[in-house]
Write a protein that binds this DNA or RNA. Structure first.
Length: 567
DNA sequence: GTCCCTTTGAAGCGC
DNA sequence: GCGCTTCAAAGGGAC
């Protein structure tokens, strides 16, 4: 869902924060949004299950869809109530003032009373937060909170067979992980699930070598680095995780002193990457989950580096690897959201193709409320902070060329005339979601977001933004036909976005070159922290009005559908 | 076995 | 400053 871009200027987008435009009316709106999101999923489900149904009659399906979508709003509202309650509490204390993210109960509900075992190991209770369910998830009551712990390790990622055990997977674990590639689907090997006895299913005291990747913490290291998530540090000032007997192998040893942080830094940390290898050790000496072992990541270049195979001596190889560790980029807000929600989407529908799931996630992302998105933006910002602190010299440029070399080459060719496109490059724009379904979303990704007149968010995102951008009018079908291999996104930087959106942006800047002009530009949140209260009030008023427009536009979606199908 | 697809966002580079 | 490119996650599908 796009954010307001109230012409705040570049600095507004710089902080990756958003204004909390929350008001009483938003609850209703959020419910509506989530019903819509639920509808999206239903659509996808039905469309995929019943393949023959596709495209028969967009208008008809649209008519059918709306009532169907409201069939069971309760199922979505329940968790939403929970979430709303958290939101309300959050607002009482100011936005992001308190440690908790309302949507991150694990941040608030660590068992601070007894988070540790006597030996310093993390007690099962302390891990509770890791396995708690995301409130947005359709958890039947709160029963799943602790039950899930017993059955599933909290660090299991969304690669877990979520379809089979969707409610046992903590969505936040993938949310804030630097790498969960270690999480094997299906029954994880015992060494990958150190917390649960594979036989008894009872949490067990992990072997130091097993535990350490998750919550090791050096007491001495605590506080050495300014905590980027200091606002999340428990009031007690007590580190959430103590140093395991084996010492640390935590990716962020100095920073993993609270649940959020620990989750943030540890869950992306793969046991595979547990610094058995020198190349997993950052130059600072701090192992980091973002440092990917070539053996794991299978990078094209380094993949062949193997002391046993290579003629080079292991020492040389080591040196080489130490020279160029692959430090992953910090995840952005959407990536964090994806990691969290993927499991849910996969669990809720039969979809398995990530491309399709990502489309859904993209739509859901836009349908998120600003507060919800704000969580992820904030989390992403913290992660970037953390990343930058751990790797001051690291640049995103460092990873250029380390991934998908071929693709890049083909991309170079893609800059040439289309005739030179390889068949593979031409294979694009697989429409995973039926056109009418795509439009169904309040603000679907890419195409729908920018092209669909039904994208209310785009129109309402900025007071100055004209309702339909030129691209919306000119390319109502861009979703189904993408001109280039990867035309989507290319969103301006936050600052640019704000500037662009504040001055009827999409008509001029974003549409000039790329057909993938997108109003996702408008989806950038306004850093709420940078706005004065008065502005917030004004923005809130606007937001309310915008929400009305939003709903109005939603009602008008069938029209846009007809238009699209006619095209 | 490798790459593509798909999503959004961040960062870097070139003009 | 703007536009474009690359990468981040994920996993089924295509080749």
């Amino acid at each position: 869902m796009p954010q307001l871009n109230g012409g705040g200027g570049d600095d507004l987008g710089a902080n990756d924060e958003m204004i909390s435009f929350k008001d009483e009316g938003e609850q209703e709106d959020k419910i509506s949004e989530n019903v819509s999101a639920e509808r999206d999923l239903d659509d996808v489900k039905s469309s995929l299950v019943n393949e023959s149904e596709n495209n028969s009659s967009s208008s008809d399906s649209e008519v059918e869809r709306r009532p169907r979508a409201r069939q069971d709003p309760e199922s979505y509202e329940k968790p939403r109530d929970y979430f709303s309650e958290a939101l309300r509490r959050q607002q009482d204390g100011g936005f992001f003032k308190n440690p908790p993210y309302p949507g991150y109960p694990f941040l608030m509900i660590p068992d601070l009373s007894n988070p540790y075992l006597s030996n310093g190991s993390l007690s099962p209770g302390a891990r509770t937060y890791l396995q708690m369910k995301w409130p947005l998830l359709d958890v039947p009551g709160s029963a799943g909170l602790k039950d899930s712990r017993a059955s599933t390790p909290g660090h299991l990622s969304n690669k877990v067979p979520v379809v089979q055990h969707p409610h046992h997977v903590h969505p936040l674990t993938p949310l804030i992980t630097y790498s969960n590639e270690h999480f094997s689907p299906g029954t994880p090997p015992s060494h990958l699930s150190p917390e649960i006895d594979p036989k008894t299913g009872i949490p067990r005291t992990p072997h130091p070598s097993e535990l350490s990747p998750y919550y090791p913490l050096s007491p001495g290291a605590v506080g050495q680095i300014p905590h980027p998530l200091g606002w999340l540090v428990p009031q007690q000032g007590q580190p959430m995780y103590s140093l395991p007997p084996g010492g640390f192998r935590h990716p962020y040893p100095a920073l993993a002193m609270n649940p959020s942080m620990s989750s943030l830094v540890s869950s992306r940390f793969s046991p595979h990457m547990v610094p058995h290898h020198a190349h997993s050790i950052h130059q600072t000496g701090i192992p980091h989950p973002a440092i990917v072992s070539p053996a794991i990541k299978q990078e094209p270049v380094q993949d062949n580096i193997s002391p046993t195979i290579h003629s080079k001596s292991p020492v040389q190889v080591k040196k080489e690897e130490e020279k160029k560790p692959h430090i992953k980029k910090p995840l952005n807000a959407f990536m964090l959201y994806m990691k969290e929600m993927r499991a849910k989407v996969v669990a809720e529908c039969t979809l398995k193709e990530s491309a399709a799931i990502n489309q859904i996630l993209g739509r859901r992302w836009h349908s998120l409320s600003r507060e919800e998105q704000a969580k992820y933006y904030e989390l992403a910002r913290k992660e970037r902070q953390l990343h930058s602190q751990l790797y001051p010299g690291w640049s995103a440029r460092d990873n250029y060329g380390k991934r998908k070399k071929r693709k890049r080459e083909s991309k170079q060719s893609s800059s040439e005339p289309e005739d030179n496109f390889s068949s593979r490059n031409k294979k694009q724009c697989v429409q995973y979601l039926p056109p009418e379904k795509m439009c169904d979303s309040p603000a679907s990704s890419h195409g729908s977001m920018l092209d669909s007149p039904a994208t209310p968010s785009a129109a309402l995102a900025s007071p100055a933004a004209p309702a339909p951008t030129h691209s919306e009018q000119a390319q109502p079908l861009s979703l189904t036909t993408k001109p280039e291999g990867r035309p989507q996104h290319h969103f301006p930087l936050p600052g640019k976005l704000s500037a662009a959106s504040s001055s009827s942006s999409s008509s001029s800047s974003s549409s000039s070159t790329s057909s993938s002009t997108s109003s996702p530009l408008l989806s950038r949140p306004i850093p709420f922290s940078s706005l004065p209260p008065s502005m917030l009030t004004t923005a809130s008023h606007f937001h309310q009005a915008a929400l009305h427009s939003h709903h109005a536009l939603l009602q008008s979606q069938p029209l846009s559908l007809v238009t699209k199908s006619n095209d």
